[in-house]
Design a protein around this nucleic acid. Structure first.
Lengths: 342, 342
DNA sequence: CTAAGTTGGTAAAACGTTTAATACAACGGT
DNA sequence: ACCGTTGTATTAAACGTTTTACCAACTTAG
């Protein structure tokens, strides 16, 4: 029952007939050891299967080999793992697996600004913060503590910050609007979320710019991310009450599913009367009737880029960001006009 | 950029005019301090927002406030976050959120027996191991190091071990067989996975026992979990080649989806000729045509039980396990006979 | 042949805790 | 008046690393 610690640096030193300092230097490739002793020590360490204790190492200020993942978008949701929302969990899975492949452990941290601070949270080597908010306190905390971090989606409060990656929403959004226009849509509605993150801000800006460029009057509706399908359903009613548009673009798959329900309930046919698409694929979009056109996000690509950026930043190398990956817009029945098919 | 550490125990001691030992004792409720000083120190610590550093604490052998989650079933899969497999990720999300609520951090650890050992992995306070294998090396490692752990699903190699929780598969399986029988099925096939865990072992045992009790000849087919839908499709062909059964029960939603495809391809109608159900709900089961009857698992309940067990075990309290939660069998079109409907 | 570098290594301090051993009162009992 | 107690708080050791300061033994230059 007693916690048995493994082989320590002292054991290795003793066996190799050197000081503990020598062992540390040999393994970390520091100091001024002769090549011969360095090799001898390494061999001994290898043989004894020595592995430096991350706690002790971290206490000294050296890297512990673990990074944190903060999901701002999930912090905001009431549930942490709502059914049908596979996007975030796919990010978690992908980031976790890739971190492992690099010899890093990954720790899920829920809002480290909340007290008491989650244990170990401030001792990690770095952080991935997904979808930071405007003036995000999490970012503040990390900055204050000098902890390296990268973000998924740009930080709306720090235009100069470059260590971020994202699926290239802006150009994808444009493609969708043009897809709508090509199908003959003249009035287009945007339904976005309310979290104050780049996703929502940039999307609306892109939408307005595009509307202006083609001479369409913008109509933006909001529904909180946490409202899910219900939120989409309610907004659909509001949209119909105002004026039935030719096309609607929603941010999340759950919103889109709700909108579809709402439209159908009001007798608005999709896609015959109104086209529908969403910027984020999910279970709902794949399987609703009709299936909803959506952008397929590639979590693996994005997390890979984030890990690259984070490791570079931890190593003190210059930033290679931002990195934009491209999602694929998959056209499904919800935005395919009969006479435009093919 | 320099990592700024927070307020240390020394700072608190100084401010309160006592020794560091006194502070430690006051906060941990140990030692022989007077009630007065204890309160005074606590007030000071509170005021300074002091939080003990988990690294330093762990180095001494005290709990670090973080636990590990090992997903054996995902270790086995090639991808760590395959689309459509929401069960595991829901476990991750649920466990993570609940751990947070208890002031614990949760770390995802992929196979800690693989060298190099994931950093911090052996310094965690305890582990949740999902679906341990027969003679699981992960369990061996934890036992050897004296690290407390609980398992999701019983450990097939340790019948005396009681610190586990699971959805009550056995009674659920029985209910499904009886559901089949009630719909008139006389020949029933079980399709299970190949991972050597309790899920597969107990399920087959339950199946055979039930068959014997009602005088049915058991027919068991195997398909590796990682084979997914493709595996189910292939097995469906094999099943049909042998003899078309009245009902098929699959373990995973992906297998069931594959079986459905395979049966349809061979002209076997579901549910008209053959009934179909699965023991594990997933995107596929909810949205296939026909929708597949499945057991809805309640990740939240189960992870809650696991955390209770783990915390008790860490605290050295007697085991309250095993804990069985009950999944709900949701009948969908795939096992609903026209003449039995209602 | 001595002063000044190199080379290759060691001893010891430091990181922030917890805890065992110890000190120092004040107090009661012979 | 002396001696164990008891009640409180302190000192110091320990956890396993990394890193700074130092040292001994050679080389080299003058």
């Amino acid at each position: 029952m007693a916690r048995s610690k493994g082989v320590t640096i002292r054991d290795v030193a003793q066996r190799a007939g050197v000081s503990v300092a020598a062992v540390s230097m040999a393994l970390n490739d520091t100091g001024t050891l002769s090549a011969a002793t360095r090799l001898r020590i390494r061999a001994t360490a290898e043989e004894m299967e020595y592995q430096a204790d991350a706690l002790a190492r971290g206490l000294r200020g050296s890297p512990v080999g673990a990074i944190g993942l903060v999901m701002r978008s999930l912090d905001a949701l009431s549930e942490y793992a709502p059914p049908g929302v596979d996007l975030f969990t796919r990010y978690i899975g992908a980031a976790s697996a890739q971190a492992m492949d690099r010899g890093l452990s990954l720790m899920l941290v829920r809002d480290p600004t909340k007290r008491p601070t989650p244990p170990l949270a401030l001792s990690l080597d770095g952080y991935i913060v997904t979808m930071p908010h405007v003036d995000d306190p999490v970012i503040d905390l990390l900055e204050r503590r000098g902890i390296p971090y990268v973000t998924l989606g740009r930080d709306p409060s720090r235009p100069d910050f470059t260590d971020w990656a994202t699926e290239d929403e802006i150009s994808t959004f444009r493609r969708i609007y043009e897809h709508f226009a090509a199908a003959g849509a003249r009035s287009i509605v945007l339904l976005r979320g309310t979290d104050p993150n780049a996703w929502n801000i940039d999307s609306e800006a892109t939408y307005r710019a595009w509307c202006e460029s083609v001479g369409i009057t913008p109509r933006v509706y909001l529904s909180a991310e946490r409202a899910g399908e219900r939120g989409g359903e309610e907004v659909a009613q509001a949209i119909v009450d105002d004026e039935i548009p030719d096309a609607i673009l929603c941010h999340t798959g759950r919103q889109a599913a709700g909108v579809l329900t709402g439209l159908t309930a009001r007798g608005v046919a999709v896609p015959d009367r109104t086209l529908l698409a969403t910027a984020s694929d999910s279970e709902h979009t794949r399987h609703s009737r009709p299936a909803i056109s959506a952008v397929e996000l590639h979590a693996e690509e994005t997390t890979l880029a984030l890990l690259d950026l984070l490791q570079a930043r931890i190593a003190g190398e210059p930033s290679a960001g931002p990195i934009l990956t491209t999602g694929r817009f998959r056209v499904r029945a919800s935005s395919r006009r009969a006479h435009t098919s093919g």
